[in-house]
Design a protein around this nucleic acid. Structure first.
Lengths: 182, 182
DNA sequence: CCGTAAGTGAACTGATCAGTTTATAGTGAA
DNA sequence: TTCACTATAAACTGATCAGTTCACTTACGG
Protein backbone atom coordinates (compact mmCIF):
# COMPACT_ATOMS: atom_id res chain seq x y z
CA UNK A 1 0.00 0.00 0.00
CA UNK A 2 1.53 3.32 -1.12
CA UNK A 3 0.49 5.41 1.88
CA UNK A 4 -0.13 4.45 5.46
CA UNK A 5 -3.76 5.60 5.66
CA UNK A 6 -5.99 3.17 7.41
CA UNK A 7 -9.07 2.34 5.36
CA UNK A 8 -12.22 2.40 7.45
CA UNK A 9 -12.57 -1.28 8.18
CA UNK A 10 -15.92 -1.24 6.35
CA UNK A 11 -14.44 -1.83 2.90
CA UNK A 12 -12.96 0.27 0.13
CA UNK A 13 -16.11 1.79 -1.28
CA UNK A 14 -18.12 2.44 1.83
CA UNK A 15 -17.70 6.20 1.74
CA UNK A 16 -18.34 6.28 -1.98
CA UNK A 17 -21.71 4.65 -1.44
CA UNK A 18 -22.57 7.05 1.35
CA UNK A 19 -21.68 10.04 -0.79
CA UNK A 20 -23.69 8.81 -3.77
CA UNK A 21 -26.64 8.12 -1.52
CA UNK A 22 -26.37 11.57 -0.03
CA UNK A 23 -26.58 13.19 -3.44
CA UNK A 24 -29.50 11.16 -4.72
CA UNK A 25 -31.54 11.20 -1.53
CA UNK A 26 -31.10 14.94 -1.17
CA UNK A 27 -32.21 15.62 -4.68
CA UNK A 28 -35.00 13.02 -5.00
CA UNK A 29 -36.27 12.31 -1.49
CA UNK A 30 -36.53 8.87 0.05
CA UNK A 31 -39.27 7.28 -2.01
CA UNK A 32 -38.18 9.24 -5.06
CA UNK A 33 -34.64 7.90 -5.00
CA UNK A 34 -34.09 4.53 -6.63
CA UNK A 35 -31.35 2.24 -5.43
CA UNK A 36 -30.18 1.85 -9.01
CA UNK A 37 -29.68 5.61 -9.25
CA UNK A 38 -27.77 5.64 -6.00
CA UNK A 39 -25.50 2.84 -7.16
CA UNK A 40 -24.90 4.68 -10.42
CA UNK A 41 -24.19 8.00 -8.68
CA UNK A 42 -21.82 6.25 -6.30
CA UNK A 43 -20.01 4.54 -9.17
CA UNK A 44 -20.63 1.20 -7.57
CA UNK A 45 -22.65 -1.89 -8.41
CA UNK A 46 -25.93 -2.52 -6.70
CA UNK A 47 -24.56 -5.75 -5.28
CA UNK A 48 -21.74 -3.83 -3.63
CA UNK A 49 -24.16 -1.35 -2.16
CA UNK A 50 -26.19 -4.15 -0.66
CA UNK A 51 -23.07 -5.74 0.74
CA UNK A 52 -22.61 -2.65 2.91
CA UNK A 53 -26.17 -1.78 3.78
CA UNK A 54 -28.98 -4.23 4.52
CA UNK A 55 -31.63 -2.09 2.88
CA UNK A 56 -32.60 1.29 1.52
CA UNK A 57 -33.93 2.59 4.81
CA UNK A 58 -30.80 1.80 6.70
CA UNK A 59 -28.73 3.50 4.05
CA UNK A 60 -30.90 6.56 4.28
CA UNK A 61 -30.67 6.71 8.05
CA UNK A 62 -26.91 6.55 7.80
CA UNK A 63 -26.85 9.44 5.37
CA UNK A 64 -29.25 11.54 7.39
CA UNK A 65 -27.44 11.02 10.67
CA UNK A 66 -24.00 11.63 9.23
CA UNK A 67 -25.02 14.81 7.50
CA UNK A 68 -27.00 16.07 10.42
CA UNK A 69 -24.22 15.54 12.91
CA UNK A 70 -21.84 17.39 10.60
CA UNK A 71 -24.15 20.36 10.44
CA UNK A 72 -24.67 20.44 14.20
CA UNK A 73 -20.94 20.25 14.87
CA UNK A 74 -20.34 23.13 12.54
CA UNK A 75 -22.90 25.28 14.32
CA UNK A 76 -21.51 24.50 17.75
CA UNK A 77 -17.92 25.20 16.72
CA UNK A 78 -18.78 28.46 15.00
CA UNK A 79 -20.43 30.23 17.90
CA UNK A 80 -18.45 32.03 20.57
CA UNK A 81 -20.42 31.31 23.71
CA UNK A 82 -18.47 33.90 25.71
CA UNK A 83 -19.59 36.91 23.69
CA UNK A 84 -22.26 39.26 25.11
CA UNK A 85 -25.69 37.69 25.48
CA UNK A 86 -27.23 39.62 22.64
CA UNK A 87 -24.50 38.57 20.23
CA UNK A 88 -24.65 34.93 21.24
CA UNK A 89 -28.41 34.76 20.76
CA UNK A 90 -28.12 36.52 17.44
CA UNK A 91 -25.44 34.13 16.27
CA UNK A 92 -27.46 31.12 17.27
CA UNK A 93 -30.49 32.51 15.48
CA UNK A 94 -28.44 33.10 12.36
CA UNK A 95 -27.10 29.58 12.47
CA UNK A 96 -30.63 28.24 12.79
CA UNK A 97 -31.93 30.32 9.93
CA UNK A 98 -29.03 29.21 7.78
CA UNK A 99 -29.82 25.61 8.45
CA UNK A 100 -33.55 25.96 7.89
CA UNK A 101 -33.08 27.73 4.58
CA UNK A 102 -30.26 25.51 3.33
CA UNK A 103 -30.84 23.00 0.55
CA UNK A 104 -29.98 20.22 2.94
CA UNK A 105 -32.11 21.56 5.76
CA UNK A 106 -35.19 21.83 3.64
CA UNK A 107 -34.77 18.46 1.98
CA UNK A 108 -34.01 16.47 5.03
CA UNK A 109 -36.84 18.12 6.90
CA UNK A 110 -39.31 17.25 4.17
CA UNK A 111 -38.13 13.70 3.98
CA UNK A 112 -38.21 13.18 7.73
CA UNK A 113 -41.63 14.70 8.16
CA UNK A 114 -43.16 13.03 5.15
CA UNK A 115 -41.74 9.61 5.75
CA UNK A 116 -42.02 9.34 9.49
CA UNK A 117 -45.38 7.61 9.46
CA UNK A 118 -44.12 4.60 7.59
CA UNK A 119 -40.65 5.00 9.09
CA UNK A 120 -40.92 6.18 12.69
CA UNK A 121 -37.34 5.70 13.90
CA UNK A 122 -36.24 8.12 11.23
CA UNK A 123 -37.78 11.21 12.78
CA UNK A 124 -36.44 10.29 16.19
CA UNK A 125 -32.93 9.53 15.07
CA UNK A 126 -32.80 12.63 12.93
CA UNK A 127 -33.93 14.79 15.82
CA UNK A 128 -31.47 13.24 18.21
CA UNK A 129 -28.50 13.54 15.90
CA UNK A 130 -29.06 17.23 15.11
CA UNK A 131 -31.70 19.56 16.45
CA UNK A 132 -31.54 18.05 19.91
CA UNK A 133 -27.83 18.75 20.23
CA UNK A 134 -28.44 22.38 19.42
CA UNK A 135 -31.38 22.52 21.77
CA UNK A 136 -29.29 21.12 24.60
CA UNK A 137 -26.60 23.67 23.96
CA UNK A 138 -29.18 26.39 24.09
CA UNK A 139 -30.56 25.11 27.38
CA UNK A 140 -27.06 24.99 28.86
CA UNK A 141 -26.40 28.48 27.69
CA UNK A 142 -29.66 29.77 29.15
CA UNK A 143 -28.82 28.21 32.48
CA UNK A 144 -25.42 29.83 32.54
CA UNK A 145 -26.83 33.21 31.54
CA UNK A 146 -29.49 33.03 34.22
CA UNK A 147 -26.90 32.10 36.82
CA UNK A 148 -24.97 35.22 35.83
CA UNK A 149 -28.08 37.34 36.05
CA UNK A 150 -28.08 38.13 32.34
CA UNK A 151 -31.35 36.44 31.47
CA UNK A 152 -34.49 35.62 33.39
CA UNK A 153 -35.99 32.25 32.45
CA UNK A 154 -37.89 29.68 34.45
CA UNK A 155 -38.59 26.90 31.95
CA UNK A 156 -35.37 26.37 30.03
CA UNK A 157 -36.64 23.70 27.68
CA UNK A 158 -39.67 25.71 26.72
CA UNK A 159 -37.55 28.81 26.21
CA UNK A 160 -35.26 26.89 23.88
CA UNK A 161 -38.20 25.61 21.86
CA UNK A 162 -39.75 29.05 21.67
CA UNK A 163 -36.51 30.60 20.58
CA UNK A 164 -36.23 28.04 17.85
CA UNK A 165 -39.82 28.51 16.71
CA UNK A 166 -39.45 32.26 16.58
CA UNK A 167 -36.44 31.90 14.31
CA UNK A 168 -38.70 30.17 11.82
CA UNK A 169 -41.64 32.56 12.07
CA UNK A 170 -41.39 34.18 8.70
CA UNK A 171 -39.63 31.32 6.94
CA UNK A 172 -41.64 28.32 7.76
CA UNK A 173 -44.88 28.96 5.88
CA UNK A 174 -42.89 29.94 2.83
CA UNK A 175 -41.37 26.50 2.91
CA UNK A 176 -44.68 24.68 2.88
CA UNK A 177 -46.19 27.36 0.74
CA UNK A 178 -43.36 26.64 -1.65
CA UNK A 179 -43.06 30.14 -3.04
CA UNK A 180 -39.36 30.75 -2.49
CA UNK A 181 -37.09 29.61 -5.28
CA UNK A 182 -34.58 26.91 -4.39
CA UNK B 1 -86.21 8.11 -5.58
CA UNK B 2 -87.49 7.69 -2.03
CA UNK B 3 -86.67 11.15 -0.72
CA UNK B 4 -86.57 14.48 -2.52
CA UNK B 5 -82.90 15.37 -1.81
CA UNK B 6 -81.08 16.95 -4.70
CA UNK B 7 -77.89 15.13 -5.58
CA UNK B 8 -74.95 17.45 -6.31
CA UNK B 9 -74.98 17.73 -10.07
CA UNK B 10 -71.55 16.07 -10.32
CA UNK B 11 -73.01 12.58 -10.36
CA UNK B 12 -74.50 10.27 -7.80
CA UNK B 13 -71.33 8.93 -6.28
CA UNK B 14 -69.12 11.99 -6.25
CA UNK B 15 -69.29 12.53 -2.52
CA UNK B 16 -68.87 8.85 -1.87
CA UNK B 17 -65.58 8.90 -3.75
CA UNK B 18 -64.41 11.98 -1.88
CA UNK B 19 -65.22 10.40 1.45
CA UNK B 20 -63.44 7.15 0.62
CA UNK B 21 -60.43 9.09 -0.58
CA UNK B 22 -60.41 11.14 2.61
CA UNK B 23 -60.27 8.02 4.74
CA UNK B 24 -57.55 6.26 2.79
CA UNK B 25 -55.33 9.29 2.20
CA UNK B 26 -55.55 10.27 5.83
CA UNK B 27 -54.60 6.85 7.03
CA UNK B 28 -51.98 5.94 4.39
CA UNK B 29 -50.57 9.21 3.04
CA UNK B 30 -50.42 10.14 -0.61
CA UNK B 31 -47.89 7.68 -1.97
CA UNK B 32 -49.02 5.07 0.50
CA UNK B 33 -52.63 5.14 -0.64
CA UNK B 34 -53.48 3.02 -3.66
CA UNK B 35 -56.30 3.99 -5.96
CA UNK B 36 -57.69 0.48 -5.71
CA UNK B 37 -57.95 0.86 -1.95
CA UNK B 38 -59.69 4.20 -2.33
CA UNK B 39 -62.21 2.76 -4.77
CA UNK B 40 -62.84 -0.11 -2.41
CA UNK B 41 -63.26 2.16 0.61
CA UNK B 42 -65.61 4.37 -1.37
CA UNK B 43 -67.68 1.38 -2.50
CA UNK B 44 -67.16 2.37 -6.09
CA UNK B 45 -65.37 0.95 -9.09
CA UNK B 46 -62.04 2.34 -10.16
CA UNK B 47 -63.54 3.30 -13.51
CA UNK B 48 -66.16 5.39 -11.75
CA UNK B 49 -63.54 7.08 -9.67
CA UNK B 50 -61.59 8.00 -12.77
CA UNK B 51 -64.73 9.34 -14.39
CA UNK B 52 -64.90 11.98 -11.66
CA UNK B 53 -61.24 12.78 -11.15
CA UNK B 54 -58.57 12.93 -13.84
CA UNK B 55 -55.86 11.48 -11.61
CA UNK B 56 -54.75 10.63 -8.12
CA UNK B 57 -53.17 14.00 -7.45
CA UNK B 58 -56.25 15.93 -8.35
CA UNK B 59 -58.34 13.71 -6.14
CA UNK B 60 -55.98 14.27 -3.29
CA UNK B 61 -56.00 18.02 -3.74
CA UNK B 62 -59.77 18.01 -3.65
CA UNK B 63 -59.78 16.06 -0.42
CA UNK B 64 -57.14 18.25 1.20
CA UNK B 65 -58.82 21.49 0.24
CA UNK B 66 -62.30 20.39 1.26
CA UNK B 67 -61.19 19.13 4.62
CA UNK B 68 -58.98 22.09 5.26
CA UNK B 69 -61.64 24.63 4.50
CA UNK B 70 -64.03 22.79 6.79
CA UNK B 71 -61.55 22.97 9.64
CA UNK B 72 -60.83 26.66 9.07
CA UNK B 73 -64.54 27.52 8.96
CA UNK B 74 -65.07 25.72 12.20
CA UNK B 75 -62.31 27.66 13.90
CA UNK B 76 -63.57 30.99 12.63
CA UNK B 77 -67.14 30.33 13.68
CA UNK B 78 -66.18 29.08 17.12
CA UNK B 79 -64.28 32.12 18.29
CA UNK B 80 -66.02 35.16 19.73
CA UNK B 81 -63.95 38.02 18.39
CA UNK B 82 -65.61 40.53 20.70
CA UNK B 83 -64.45 38.94 23.93
CA UNK B 84 -61.59 40.58 25.88
CA UNK B 85 -58.22 40.48 24.10
CA UNK B 86 -56.72 37.93 26.40
CA UNK B 87 -59.63 35.55 25.91
CA UNK B 88 -59.64 35.93 22.15
CA UNK B 89 -55.93 35.21 21.87
CA UNK B 90 -56.29 32.26 24.18
CA UNK B 91 -59.15 30.85 22.14
CA UNK B 92 -57.25 31.24 18.91
CA UNK B 93 -54.24 29.54 20.44
CA UNK B 94 -56.42 26.67 21.63
CA UNK B 95 -57.94 26.27 18.21
CA UNK B 96 -54.49 26.17 16.66
CA UNK B 97 -53.21 23.62 19.13
CA UNK B 98 -56.29 21.50 18.54
CA UNK B 99 -55.68 21.52 14.83
CA UNK B 100 -51.97 20.81 15.09
CA UNK B 101 -52.49 17.87 17.41
CA UNK B 102 -55.51 16.45 15.57
CA UNK B 103 -55.24 13.27 13.53
CA UNK B 104 -56.14 15.20 10.42
CA UNK B 105 -53.79 18.08 11.15
CA UNK B 106 -50.80 15.85 11.63
CA UNK B 107 -51.50 13.70 8.62
CA UNK B 108 -52.23 16.43 6.18
CA UNK B 109 -49.23 18.36 7.34
CA UNK B 110 -46.96 15.38 6.82
CA UNK B 111 -48.33 14.70 3.41
CA UNK B 112 -48.09 18.30 2.27
CA UNK B 113 -44.56 18.76 3.52
CA UNK B 114 -43.31 15.42 2.29
CA UNK B 115 -44.91 15.56 -1.11
CA UNK B 116 -44.44 19.19 -2.00
CA UNK B 117 -41.20 18.67 -3.86
CA UNK B 118 -42.73 16.41 -6.45
CA UNK B 119 -46.07 18.17 -6.14
CA UNK B 120 -45.56 21.89 -5.59
CA UNK B 121 -49.11 23.22 -6.09
CA UNK B 122 -50.18 21.05 -3.21
CA UNK B 123 -48.40 22.99 -0.50
CA UNK B 124 -49.60 26.28 -1.88
CA UNK B 125 -53.22 25.26 -2.27
CA UNK B 126 -53.25 23.68 1.14
CA UNK B 127 -51.86 26.78 2.73
CA UNK B 128 -54.29 29.05 0.94
CA UNK B 129 -57.35 27.00 1.78
CA UNK B 130 -56.64 26.76 5.49
CA UNK B 131 -53.77 28.29 7.44
CA UNK B 132 -53.83 31.48 5.39
CA UNK B 133 -57.48 32.12 6.22
CA UNK B 134 -56.70 31.89 9.89
CA UNK B 135 -53.66 34.05 9.50
CA UNK B 136 -55.68 36.74 7.75
CA UNK B 137 -58.24 36.68 10.49
CA UNK B 138 -55.50 37.09 13.03
CA UNK B 139 -54.03 40.04 11.15
CA UNK B 140 -57.45 41.67 10.96
CA UNK B 141 -57.96 41.15 14.64
CA UNK B 142 -54.54 42.60 15.50
CA UNK B 143 -55.34 45.66 13.45
CA UNK B 144 -58.64 46.18 15.21
CA UNK B 145 -57.08 45.66 18.62
CA UNK B 146 -54.30 48.12 17.87
CA UNK B 147 -56.83 50.69 16.64
CA UNK B 148 -58.60 50.32 19.97
CA UNK B 149 -55.35 50.71 21.86
CA UNK B 150 -55.52 47.19 23.26
CA UNK B 151 -52.40 45.86 21.59
CA UNK B 152 -49.21 47.42 20.30
CA UNK B 153 -47.95 45.89 17.08
CA UNK B 154 -46.09 47.32 14.12
CA UNK B 155 -45.68 44.36 11.76
CA UNK B 156 -49.03 42.56 11.73
CA UNK B 157 -48.03 39.74 9.41
CA UNK B 158 -44.93 38.95 11.41
CA UNK B 159 -46.91 39.09 14.64
CA UNK B 160 -49.42 36.62 13.25
CA UNK B 161 -46.66 34.25 12.18
CA UNK B 162 -44.93 34.53 15.52
CA UNK B 163 -48.11 33.90 17.39
CA UNK B 164 -48.68 30.80 15.33
CA UNK B 165 -45.15 29.55 15.80
CA UNK B 166 -45.29 30.07 19.55
CA UNK B 167 -48.41 27.94 19.71
CA UNK B 168 -46.39 25.06 18.29
CA UNK B 169 -43.32 25.53 20.47
CA UNK B 170 -43.62 22.50 22.65
CA UNK B 171 -45.62 20.39 20.21
CA UNK B 172 -43.76 20.58 17.01
CA UNK B 173 -40.59 18.67 17.79
CA UNK B 174 -42.65 15.94 19.37
CA UNK B 175 -44.34 15.51 16.03
CA UNK B 176 -41.14 15.02 14.11
CA UNK B 177 -39.60 13.28 17.05
CA UNK B 178 -42.58 10.95 16.89
CA UNK B 179 -42.73 10.17 20.56
CA UNK B 180 -46.37 11.04 21.25
CA UNK B 181 -48.83 8.23 20.69
CA UNK B 182 -51.48 8.81 18.00
C1' DC C 1 1.95 -16.08 -8.95
C1' DC C 2 -1.63 -17.85 -6.71
C1' DG C 3 -5.59 -17.60 -3.71
C1' DT C 4 -8.98 -14.94 -1.48
C1' DA C 5 -11.93 -11.45 -0.95
C1' DA C 6 -14.11 -7.46 -2.97
C1' DG C 7 -16.39 -5.73 -6.77
C1' DT C 8 -19.09 -5.92 -11.24
C1' DG C 9 -22.92 -5.98 -14.52
C1' DA C 10 -26.76 -7.79 -16.02
C1' DA C 11 -30.46 -10.48 -15.80
C1' DC C 12 -34.17 -11.95 -12.86
C1' DT C 13 -38.00 -12.22 -9.18
C1' DG C 14 -41.83 -10.74 -7.27
C1' DA C 15 -44.45 -7.24 -6.14
C1' DT C 16 -47.01 -2.82 -6.53
C1' DC C 17 -49.53 0.49 -8.82
C1' DA C 18 -51.68 4.21 -11.96
C1' DG C 19 -54.57 4.39 -15.37
C1' DT C 20 -57.35 2.08 -19.48
C1' DT C 21 -60.43 -0.92 -21.64
C1' DT C 22 -64.17 -3.98 -22.33
C1' DA C 23 -68.19 -6.30 -21.99
C1' DT C 24 -72.10 -5.97 -19.13
C1' DA C 25 -75.85 -4.23 -16.29
C1' DG C 26 -78.99 -0.98 -13.90
C1' DT C 27 -81.67 3.37 -14.12
C1' DG C 28 -84.54 7.22 -15.51
C1' DA C 29 -86.94 9.77 -18.96
C1' DA C 30 -89.50 10.15 -23.30
C1' DT D 1 -89.66 -0.15 -25.21
C1' DT D 2 -85.80 2.40 -26.31
C1' DC D 3 -82.19 5.81 -25.81
C1' DA D 4 -78.69 7.84 -23.11
C1' DC D 5 -76.30 7.89 -19.15
C1' DT D 6 -74.00 6.06 -15.22
C1' DA D 7 -71.89 2.40 -13.02
C1' DT D 8 -69.45 -2.11 -12.46
C1' DA D 9 -66.02 -5.93 -12.22
C1' DA D 10 -62.18 -7.69 -13.90
C1' DA D 11 -58.66 -8.10 -16.82
C1' DC D 12 -54.92 -5.75 -18.86
C1' DT D 13 -50.86 -2.44 -19.95
C1' DG D 14 -46.87 -0.57 -19.03
C1' DA D 15 -43.96 0.99 -15.88
C1' DT D 16 -41.14 1.17 -11.56
C1' DC D 17 -38.51 -0.69 -8.08
C1' DA D 18 -36.28 -3.31 -4.01
C1' DG D 19 -33.60 -6.84 -3.41
C1' DT D 20 -31.20 -11.37 -5.18
C1' DT D 21 -28.34 -14.24 -7.86
C1' DC D 22 -24.60 -15.57 -10.71
C1' DA D 23 -20.90 -15.94 -13.69
C1' DC D 24 -17.10 -13.21 -14.18
C1' DT D 25 -13.22 -9.86 -13.23
C1' DT D 26 -9.96 -7.02 -10.31
C1' DA D 27 -6.81 -6.18 -6.85
C1' DC D 28 -3.89 -7.30 -3.30
C1' DG D 29 -1.25 -9.72 0.24
C1' DG D 30 1.72 -13.52 1.28
Amino acid sequence: MPDGTIEPKKGRKFDQVLEGARQVFLSDGFEGASVDDIAKAAGVSKATLYSYFPDKRFLFMQVAKTECARQADHAIETIDMDAPVQKVLCDIAMEMVDFITSQFGKRIFRICVGESDRFPELGREFYESGPMLIRNRLVEYFQKAVAQGELNITDFELAAEQFHELCKADLFPRMVFNMTEE
